[in-house]
Design a protein around this nucleic acid. Structure first.
Length: 597
RNA sequence: GCCCCCAUAGUUCAAGGGAUAGAAUAGCAGUUUCCUAAACUGUAGAUACAGGUUCGAGUCCUGUUGGGGGUACCA
């Protein structure tokens, strides 16, 4: 049992003994003692004043006395205002360190019977344009959250849903037909997703021209947007596609395959993967069936023009279209089908969708519609709603060319890592391939950490010029700390020292050393909290604190040059564990750490 | 119009209702005969505004201002 659990029980016991009433467990709040005070854990006593009917100082002192005498590992206590600071003994921390040292995968839970089966959907690209910075946040979050949930002992299925059908796909297909002149990725030497994306942009440009012309011919803007011949053609193409038209289907397959080849390159670079890939084209029909069934049962409504709707006004939402008047599906239709398919395929305890907060309403509606259609599992749908990535000049707009392309950004980060390394004269004695791998690790590490250290829910700002940083609270800082420790371990090996698996010491642990042990001990909590909140930022902050603390320790104390052998071994063991935890934490963020840099 | 989210140093981010609001970066001043200076130390700098709840509010409630997103045939 964790020491805090033990103390908690004693607090209940103690207050009952002292004042004759048991406090509510929820009122017992422990926090780590702030650095400026003496102690390890702090109990806030304000909530107990009603029971004790005494002042905060007196109450804290009473409880402190009780705990010190009843729990042997509490060495002493002090009281500051209503805060009871408890200090644990040296030997407690040493023992604790030994339990941590022995556990090779410390902090990470193995999947067991109590673990749940979870599905995490992320990435979910459209096949009409290449991946950009926004997708990067999505992919990194999805991957990391899935890893964090695994580390909490759950079985996790990472899935991708490719939005490979719909009017937007037809737009790029149509533009390619009209203006493509048979261009292919091979002929043009353009990455497949980029090539297709270019035609999506082309469509929009031509479409806007048509709108402008119609408006000058006297139509209103809305009429013009609706009546533009290009849009009519795209709609016609979607109808043909849904009817299984051979020519349209062939073109669709060809262009999508170009895109997939391009995506694979980007996914590989980013280091994300999936256990299963779903295609919207394979699920929308199921969605359609479910919608029609819902109509038959009278749960949904049909309007005069033939379109089918869910009326959610009684629940404070609007009406939502589920099938267009021409019978084609919308986004919601296929999401209904996909969800149904997944819950019938797997016994999911929860299904997490990693999707931007612009779709909050969509998921609210999705859950409600599924509930109305009678699916109880709709309660097990969660939405990890993350904030947009903004540029200094505002939101990214693909049609206006203000997007930061994913591939370009990654390449730029890796390049900068290379330049910086060369400038600092690092890695000179590494082989070419190993050096290249390290540059890659550092560049990607910088990018991943930059994005994941921010609370997912928050809108974040990305400044291409200033955000590429390798000093301070960054990925490379963590990597550097890890590499530094590896260097010490290598040197130890060279002189025949083996890092011990357990330590014993007569002398007292110094505050900085104890601080490291305390931080290490908290790794498991960080993983738990990150899992509960779906927040990789918790892990990022944790390993940053740990690395920072280690660096000051490293600066102030000698490790290999320490003459006291016991102390040397102790410091070596702690350093090794710090490196292990940094690495394990970084891996949860999808980040690798090098042994030298 | 209606609905949702956000607002913390110059800038980018932290802070499960708890102590004197932490970091990083940019600024200034320092630390390499010593295990990697991508490091370390010092210095200065912030809770949009007005009320309220509470022993205690950056955090909860109300209002104001400013920003972002959604809103019935895009995904």
């Amino acid at each position: 049992m964790h020491i805090l659990e033990v103390i908690k029980k004693e607090v209940v016991e103690g207050i009952d003994r002292l004042y004759g009433t048991k406090p509510d467990e929820k009122q017992i709040q422990f926090q780590k003692t702030r650095k400026e005070f003496e102690g390890d854990f702090t109990l806030v006593v304000f909530p107990f004043l009603r029971i004790s009917k005494k002042g905060p100082e007196q109450t804290a002192a009473d409880i402190g006395e009780f705990l010190t005498s009843s729990i042997s590992v509490i060495e002493n206590f002090n009281v500051v205002k209503g805060f009871l600071n408890l200090k644990l003994t040296n030997s407690f921390w040493l023992n604790h360190l030994n339990t941590i040292l022995i556990d090779a995968s410390f902090g990470i839970k193995k999947p067991d019977s109590s673990g749940k089966t979870l599905m995490v959907e992320y990435s979910s690209p459209n096949t009409n344009k290449p991946l950009h910075l926004g997708h990067i946040r999505n992919n990194l979050l999805g991957y990391s959250v899935a890893e964090i949930l695994k580390a909490n002992g759950h079985k996790v299925l990472k899935v991708n849903l490719v939005n490979d059908r719909g009017i937007h796909i037809c737009k790029s297909m149509l533009a390619w037909q009209k203006w493509g002149n048979g261009a292919t990725p091979e002929k043009t030497n353009i990455k497949g997703d980029k090539l297709v994306g270019n035609y999506y942009v082309k469509f929009d440009q031509e479409y806007k021209k048509e709108i402008a012309k119609l408006i000058s011919d006297g139509f209103t803007e809305d009429e013009a947007k609706n009546k533009a011949p290009l849009l009519e053609e795209a709609r016609e193409m979607l109808r043909k596609w849904e009817a299984g038209d051979k020519e349209v289907t062939e073109l669709w397959k060809t262009m999508n395959n170009w895109v997939y080849a391009g995506f694979d390159v980007s996914y590989k670079k980013l280091g994300v993967d999936f256990d299963k890939v779903y295609y919207e084209s394979e699920t929308y029909k199921l969605g359609k069936e479910i919608v029609l069934e819902g109509l038959n049962k009278g749960i949904l409504i049909k309007k005069e023009d033939g379109s089918i709707w869910a009326d959610l006004t009684a629940d404070g939402l609007d009406q939502k279209i589920l099938l267009r008047s021409d019978g084609t599906s919308v986004y919601m239709t296929q999401d209904i089908g996909t969800a149904h398919q997944r819950f019938s395929e797997f016994a999911l305890d929860n299904h997490l969708y990693v999707v931007g907060n612009e779709q909050n309403y969509h998921f609210q509606v999705l859950k409600l519609v599924l509930k109305k259609l009678g699916y109880d599992w709709s309660d097990n749908i969660s939405h990890l709603s993350y904030g947009m990535v903004e540029l200094p000049e505002g939101k990214m707009k693909s049609r206006e060319g203000t997007v930061v392309d994913a591939d370009d950004l990654i390449d730029e980060m890796v390049n900068t890592a290379k330049e910086t390394s060369l400038e600092l004269g690092k890695l000179n004695n590494l082989g070419e391939q190993e050096a290249a791998e390290t540059f890659n690790m550092i560049g990607l590490g910088a990018l991943k950490y930059f994005i994941l250290k921010v609370d997912p829910k928050k809108t974040m700002l990305f400044n291409p010029q200033e955000s590429i940083d390798f000093n301070g609270n960054t990925g490379p800082f963590l990597q550097y700390t890890h590499a530094r420790i590896c260097s010490i371990i290598r040197k130890a090996k060279d002189i025949g020292i083996v890092v011990p698996e357990s330590v014993s010491m007569d002398s007292a642990i110094k505050p900085k050393e104890q601080e490291l042990i305390k931080l290490l001990a908290d790794f498991g909590n960080a993983i738990e909290e990150a899992g509960k909140l779906y927040s990789p930022a918790v892990i990022a902050n944790f390993i940053y604190e740990l690395a920072k603390e280690f660096n000051t320790f490293y600066h102030d104390f000698s490790i290999l040059k320490e003459e006291n052998v016991e102390l040397k071994m102790f410091r070596l063991a702690v350093s090794q564990k710090v490196a292990n935890v940094i690495k394990a934490g970084a891996l949860l963020l999808g980040m690798n750490v090098p042994d030298r840099m």
